[in-house]
């Protein structure tokens, strides 16, 4: 018996390959593009597309760690407040005369600290769910941001800082390059390292993971800290693009981000889903929004469409399992060789 032999079901099949949720997303994406370019001649304009990409990519940096958090079967709804707080701290420090380079580093540190606090609270007080903990810190972080700036906006950053949000490298927006690099890094972390494997283990069965020597608490704290750090990265790009910052920036980002992750096929029950799905979902929602904006469909309609897509994302995997029940049944029916 060759235990390393992969069965037909386990091996490569074109049908199985294209039945994956990610292909569904790409299909929807192509559909959206087709409809949009049919409805508006300006949709496939390179400059327009480029500008649109630069607008919606800021929050995409948070989608990456949010994938890890949701695979852990946790959630973080404080990320938008973390964006606001780290942006405000940076702007405030710069206004006080701190060099921009230092202010940027402190911005990243503040974001990471916010995330660390979330993670620490979640592992320290296990009876509290991640929703409750991050709901509390969501209010607190935003509250501190308001205390620091009240209702003012702070701006006039150095000229070079604009590069983050507006710059190009070989004609490609810098933000897009940065996002792709980060996405690849996160995908490798999740799929190719022991750290990623342990994240999936915890999401699937936290008890068995603990019994297997996985440092569940440590991994959770690291992942939440990463989320805070990436929220600060979002703060940098957002502030650079807007040229100034206010305590109420990024309001509602947490729900956009979670929607993208769920649409990307990452199960809120934990343990399932891939980075690529969430990345496709980022562009899908981004271009959908841009296209609908071009043909003057109100923002509210967009919300309805995103809501419907989400319901689809949650339902389709279930339908798929039911539909392919006869296929799933096969391995169990087949005679399994037993010693007895």
């Amino acid at each position: 018996m060759d235990l390393l032999r992969r069965d037909n079901e386990k091996g490569f099949s074109w049908k199985g390959f294209f039945l994956q949720w990610e292909w569904m997303l790409i299909l929807i994406f192509l559909l959206v593009t087709a409809i949009n370019s049919y409805l508006s001649p300006y949709y496939l304009n390179y400059d327009n597309l480029r500008d649109a990409t630069m607008t919606f990519l800021d929050k995409a940096f948070i989608v990456l760690p949010m994938v890890l958090i949701i695979i852990l079967a946790d959630i973080d709804i404080s990320v938008a407040s973390t964006v606001a707080l780290s942006a405000v701290v940076m702007a405030d420090l710069y206004a006080m005369g701190v060099p921009m380079e230092v202010a940027i580093l402190i911005c990243l540190a503040v974001g990471a600290l916010c995330g660390f606090i979330n993670g620490w609270l979640i592992v320290r007080f296990k009876e509290l769910s991640a929703v409750i903990v991050t709901l509390a810190t969501m209010i607190i972080y935003r509250g501190i941001a308001y205390m620091m700036l009240e209702d003012q906006a702070v701006g006039q950053f150095p000229e070079w800082f604009k590069f983050l949000g507006w710059g190009y490298v070989f004609g490609i927006p810098f933000i897009l390059i940065a996002f792709v690099v980060c996405a690849i890094a996160f995908a490798l972390l999740l799929h190719k390292t022991t750290f990623g494997r342990r994240i999936y283990a915890i999401g699937n069965n936290p008890t068995a993971s603990r019994f297997s020597g996985v440092q569940v608490d440590r991994i959770k704290i690291i992942v939440f800290t990463l989320a805070g750090l990436m929220a600060a990265v979002t703060a940098l790009f957002l502030t650079s693009r807007m040229g100034s910052t206010r305590p109420n920036v990024a309001t509602g980002y947490e729900l956009d981000v979670i929607a993208m992750v769920v649409l990307g096929g990452i199960s809120t029950a934990g343990g399932k889903g891939r980075m690529i799905g969430a990345v496709i979902a980022v562009f899908l929602i981004g271009y959908l929004r841009y296209g609908l904006g071009l043909i003057n469909i109100p923002a509210q309609a967009l919300l309805i469409i995103i809501g419907l897509l989400l319901i689809g994302a949650v339902m389709v995997p279930k339908l798929k399992i039911r539909g392919s029940g006869w296929r799933k049944a096969k391995p169990a029916d087949a005679p399994v060789k037993r010693a007895l």
Partner: peptide, 20 residues
Amino acid sequence: LAQKLQVKARSIYDPVSSLS
């Protein structure tokens, strides 16, 4: 290890949920 302990399965890629 699976061979050493004589785990009866078709391959080591089978999900453990399918085992006795």
